[in-house]
Simulated scan of single mutants.
Amino acid sequence: MSAQPPTPPHMTVDEFLVWASERPGRHELINGEVVSQSAERAAHWKVKLAVHVALLNAVRAGGLNCHVVPDGATVRIDDATAYEPNALVYCGEEAAPSALTVDNPVIIVEVLSPSTGRMDRARKLADYFRLPSLAHYLIVDSNEPLVIHHRRQEGCDILTRIIREGATLLDPPGLEVVVAEIYGAS
Rank of each mutant, 00 (worst) to 15 (best):
residue 7 T to Q: 11
residue 44 H to Q: 02
residue 163 I to Q: 08
residue 186 S to L: 10
residue 48 K to F: 04
residue 174 G to W: 05
residue 129 F to K: 11
residue 87 A to P: 05
residue 82 A to C: 12
residue 4 Q to V: 14
residue 19 W to S: 02
residue 71 D to Y: 09
residue 71 D to G: 15
residue 62 G to W: 01
residue 130 R to S: 07
residue 57 N to R: 14
residue 139 I to Q: 04
residue 169 L to V: 15
residue 22 E to A: 15
residue 73 A to Q: 06
residue 58 A to M: 10
residue 115 S to G: 06
residue 90 Y to P: 00
residue 78 D to F: 15
residue 147 V to Y: 08
residue 11 M to P: 14
residue 113 S to E: 12
residue 143 N to S: 09
residue 124 K to L: 09
residue 58 A to E: 08
residue 151 R to W: 01
residue 99 A to C: 07
residue 86 N to V: 07
residue 42 A to T: 14
residue 93 E to W: 07
residue 57 N to T: 07
residue 104 N to T: 11
residue 74 T to Q: 12
residue 160 T to M: 08
residue 86 N to F: 09
residue 111 V to T: 10
residue 104 N to R: 05
residue 180 A to T: 04
residue 119 M to I: 01
residue 167 A to K: 10
residue 140 V to R: 03
residue 103 D to P: 03
residue 112 L to Q: 04
residue 8 P to S: 01
residue 38 S to V: 05
residue 15 E to G: 01
residue 100 L to N: 15
residue 145 P to G: 10
residue 102 V to C: 02
residue 39 A to C: 09
residue 131 L to D: 01
residue 63 G to K: 09
residue 121 R to L: 14
residue 15 E to C: 03
residue 7 T to N: 11
residue 93 E to P: 13
residue 15 E to T: 11
residue 58 A to N: 06
residue 163 I to G: 10
residue 12 T to E: 02
residue 28 E to L: 03
residue 34 V to Q: 03
residue 99 A to M: 05
residue 116 T to R: 07
residue 181 E to W: 12
residue 182 I to T: 07
residue 20 A to F: 08
residue 3 A to K: 10
residue 91 C to N: 03
residue 81 T to K: 10
residue 14 D to I: 09
residue 71 D to R: 12
residue 90 Y to S: 00
residue 44 H to D: 02
residue 177 V to K: 00
residue 138 L to H: 05
residue 19 W to H: 09
residue 74 T to V: 12
residue 178 V to R: 04
residue 184 G to D: 09
residue 152 R to W: 00
residue 63 G to I: 13
residue 25 G to Q: 13
residue 155 G to Y: 02
residue 159 L to M: 14
residue 156 C to M: 10
residue 169 L to C: 14
residue 101 T to F: 03
residue 125 L to N: 12
residue 144 E to W: 01
residue 58 A to C: 13
residue 76 R to T: 08
residue 23 R to F: 14
residue 39 A to L: 11
residue 126 A to M: 15
residue 65 N to V: 02
residue 33 E to R: 14
residue 158 I to W: 05
residue 91 C to Y: 02
residue 163 I to M: 06
residue 28 E to Q: 13
residue 157 D to S: 07
residue 79 D to C: 15
residue 61 A to H: 13
residue 47 V to K: 04
residue 2 S to R: 11
residue 175 L to E: 03
residue 133 S to L: 01
residue 132 P to V: 01
residue 66 C to K: 00
residue 90 Y to H: 00
residue 16 F to T: 10
residue 61 A to Y: 11
residue 27 H to R: 09
residue 99 A to Y: 08
residue 26 R to P: 00
